[in-house]
Nucleic acid binder design. Structure first.
Lengths: 239, 239
DNA sequence: GCGAGAAAATGAATATGATTCAGAAATTGA
DNA sequence: TCAATTTCTGAATCATATTCATTTTCTCGC
């Protein structure tokens, strides 16, 4: 435990502190209004120090997105560890993500913005790699569910590799999130509750994969029931 | 045909001209490098004139996205008018969109960026409405396919309304596009050809809807065949 | 504990680029 | 033709991200 590491730890702690402050600022006045000088003031550091942590504003935003992974992972882990059949757990993963975004709309917004090429390209390569790595555990958790499902025969062997299987879920989650952020657009197309609708389409998709037990996508009671069970059994006592 | 309308037409023509130039600039040096002053120079107008057309840079970007609708619609119309069973046409819609994005990656990028809250919020309310309206025909085209499918019994009556039915397709398209723009991320998760993979997941989803005739998602030959038939029969002689 | 050298922090100055607006030019209508 | 109105102009302004010459703090051999 030499000096070097202590310094590094302190530095990491401050970076975390700065990200906390940045997130607070976003919550207070919105992502559009986030300014580096405000963050420097809020974090009680000079501009130069701020820039020694984040190579650009975009780098900071991607760092925020990296940070959100921790919370997401925690939610998803609970969903995956639920004592239920694999298909329910898969659906729970989607709900976990949704509940995360519902509880932290600003993270949802930042995540979406960070993945636009404009931000992605201006962030440092290091940060981009951090981002990819920070999401790895989510992949692993979900892949484990796929493997379980295959092992117990709930999910037939298909041409999809384990890695390819969750792609449909992933794109629906991201697509729904993106549509949600264009205020007024979904209303225009008579889409009322995008997340609920997404869950129904996920049910359709799971049926298409022949993931047992097959469910009726119009079983609203089941979906509501699942949702409330998740809230009480899996995500109890959360923010 | 009084003076007023002629003037309005001229104004609209210039706006179109400016959008042409803006798109060219994006193609030449990228979205990140797009500058209002460059556009003013390229379009041979003063800054003030530029701002009389677009209330902000973000407004311009959303206008570009609106403009891309025209091209998208043309592609999708062809797909929808294809002389095939409804399910094939639905898949063709997705491919049309993909082919559009493949042929115009910069529009794909702009569309995605424009739908981030940061851009969306800073664009004028008028432009946002224009955007929603510009996408309406796409909705109508797709809804027509759903109605056809229902009418001829290819798609069973389900709890989804006609408007709700394409949501799964829509989110997969948007989600795939977004993931594609975060360079390196998909590679990190061992996803090789996102668009092809998306088509396979769409097949799964269509199967889940019980949209006849049911197809095997792993039928690579079929997917490739569909793709090449589309190219020759539907989108022949395109950019 | 002391001081030279290295590392880190500072924030005023700079740079970039979006946006404005007072005046110039063009158009309209009597 | 010309006063009123509309449109256009681009230099000036403003907002902010980013830099870097100085100052401060830390490290370590003596």
């Amino acid at each position: 435990m030499n000096t070097q590491t202590r310094k590094q730890r302190e530095r990491a702690a401050r970076e975390d502190e700065l990200l906390d402050r940045a997130y607070e600022l976003v919550c207070e006045s919105g992502l559009v209004a986030l300014q580096m000088s405000h963050l420097a003031r809020a974090g009680e550091v000079a501009m130069g120090t701020l820039y020694s942590h984040f190579s650009s504003k975009e780098d900071l935003l991607l760092a925020l997105s990296v940070r959100s992974s921790t919370y997401r992972i925690e939610q998803i882990r609970r969903a995956v560890e639920w004592q239920e059949r694999s298909r329910m757990r898969m659906l729970a993963v989607a709900m976990a993500d949704w509940m995360f975004m519902d509880a932290h709309p600003h993270y949802a917004q930042i995540d979406q913005y960070a993945m636009s090429e404009v931000v992605w390209e201006r962030a440092s390569p290091q940060r981009r790699q951090d981002f990819a790595r920070s999401r790895e555990p989510i992949g692993e958790l979900i892949h484990a569910v796929v493997r379980d499902a295959r092992a117990c025969g709930d999910l037939p062997e298909a041409s999809f590799s384990v890695e390819e299987t969750p792609f449909g879920l992933w794109t629906m989650l991201i697509g729904t999130n993106q549509l949600t952020h264009a205020a007024g657009l979904l209303e225009h197309f008579k889409i009322d509750k995008p997340h609920q609708l997404m869950v129904r389409h996920l049910t359709v998709w799971l049926n298409g994969l022949e993931w047992q037990p097959i469910m009726a996508p119009d079983d609203k009671a089941l979906s509501d029931n699942l949702c409330s069970r998740l809230r009480t059994e899996v995500f109890a006592r959360d923010t």
